[in-house]
């Protein structure tokens, strides 16, 4: 077989394959539920109801979407320039680490000064963590996929070491857990009486900011050019390595905000299970959004909804929560295939 680019894809060409991908994902999920011996319609219904059915469920989904918007943006920014940052998990923990180091009493400032300071320092920490793979890539040509992946393991062990050492909460009953943030370091709720913190607002703000950078700034243009064709970009006089380093700094900073927002908005302290793989899930979020920063907001809510819905579903039906991860992995693979099929025609030879 052979792939042939389509010059002017028709409307149905650009809509049918993605719709089929979503339909196929639902069918596969139903089959998986049947394998587990459950009624597929009931399972899907429970997932949707558990994710969006009640006010409580919806708020839970928005809370779960918040870190995913940040990591999704981090991945979207990096992948757009074809810088493969698979290390959002490490950068997330870097942001969380700085938040507890400075926010548990080291800086006894009032909230209006402390929170911006924490945001700034978290961003710097995340950027710094990703700067290492970026420099290794631009200076030595070391592939960033492997270095960012391995840094996830290194960084998690580093956090574990700190939580059992200098950062350990003396009041924590022996658990590896940091002290709690002071009240001024906590993110307030966005609306009185609703369990939704300002981390969500910050995430939306970041998505808009990234969109502006990508579509309205020189850096955005350069990042896109580097992603499309590195040689052509270099030939056109774009400083490719500088652009890659800037991309990395932006991406790392965004991922770190996920850690900041989880600690300051939700958990109040740092533990080793702060992130159930938000860094990796960010890749799914970004790919489903076709690397569009505003689309990331939507897909993050969708992905968060599946996780929250599956959690509540598995309490009611005897289907393991891993159904959610399988659905998302399937959706990811089918969607990249579908997007390709909107632009290419498959010809038999």
């Amino acid at each position: 077989m052979r792939l042939e680019p389509i010059a002017n894809p028709s409307f149905s060409r650009s809509v049918v394959p993605p719709a089929l991908a979503i339909a196929a994902t639902v069918v596969i999920a139903s089959l998986l539920a049947m394998i587990a011996g459950a009624d597929p319609f009931a399972v899907l219904g429970l997932i949707i109801k558990g994710a969006f059915g009640t006010k409580f469920a919806l708020l839970e989904t928005l809370n779960r979407a918040t870190p995913l918007i940040f990591t999704g943006l981090a991945v979207a920014v990096a992948f757009r320039a074809r810088f493969w940052n698979i290390g959002a998990e490490a950068q997330l923990y870097a942001g969380a680490l700085v938040t507890v180091v400075l926010g548990t009493g080291a800086l006894p400032w009032p909230g209006f000064a402390l929170i911006p300071m924490l945001v700034l320092c978290a961003v710097l920490a995340g950027a710094l963590v990703l700067l290492v793979p970026a420099v290794l890539k631009t200076r030595f040509g070391v592939d960033e996929v492997v270095t960012t992946l391995l840094l996830n393991f290194i960084f998690l062990l580093f956090i574990s070491m700190l939580l059992e050492g200098p950062l350990k909460d003396p009041m924590g009953m022996g658990w590896p857990k940091s002290a709690r943030l002071i009240a001024d370091a906590r993110l307030p709720r966005m609306f009185e009486g609703l369990r939704l913190h300002w981390g969500f607002g910050l995430a939306i703000l970041c998505a808009v900011a990234v969109w502006v950078i990508q579509t309205r700034s020189t850096l955005g243009y350069e990042m896109r050019a580097v992603g499309l064709n590195r040689e052509a970009a270099a030939f056109a006089g774009i400083p490719v390595n500088k652009v890659l380093v800037k991309t990395a700094l932006l991406s790392g900073g965004l991922a770190a905000l996920a850690g900041f927002s989880e600690v300051a908005g939700l958990k109040g302290s740092l533990t080793l299970d702060l992130s159930p793989g938000f860094g990796y899930t960010g890749i799914i979020v970004a790919m489903l959004a076709l690397l569009n920063p505003l689309g990331v907001i939507v897909t993050a809510m969708f992905v968060a909804g599946i996780f929250v819905g599956a959690d509540s579903m598995s309490r009611a039906a005897a289907v393991p929560t891993y159904l959610a991860d399988m659905m998302l992995a399937t959706a990811l693979l089918l969607m990249v295939l579908a997007i390709m099929l909107t632009r290419f025609r498959v010809r038999r030879e």
Binding site: M1, L3, L32, I35, A36, W84, I86, V145, Y280, I283, I284, M287, P320, Y322, L323, D325, M326, L328, A329, T330, L332, L333, V336, L337, M340
Partner: peptide, 28 residues
């Protein structure tokens, strides 16, 4: 290979799928 999709994205997708289906099968 025939569809020529991003090897990074597909590879990570396969890792996610293989891991989650393993855990799903284990729990079942």
């Amino acid at each position: 290979v025939p569809f020529g999709l991003s090897q990074h994205v597909v590879g990570l997708g396969v890792t996610l799928l293989a891991t989650s289906s393993t855990y799903y099968a284990y729990r079942l």
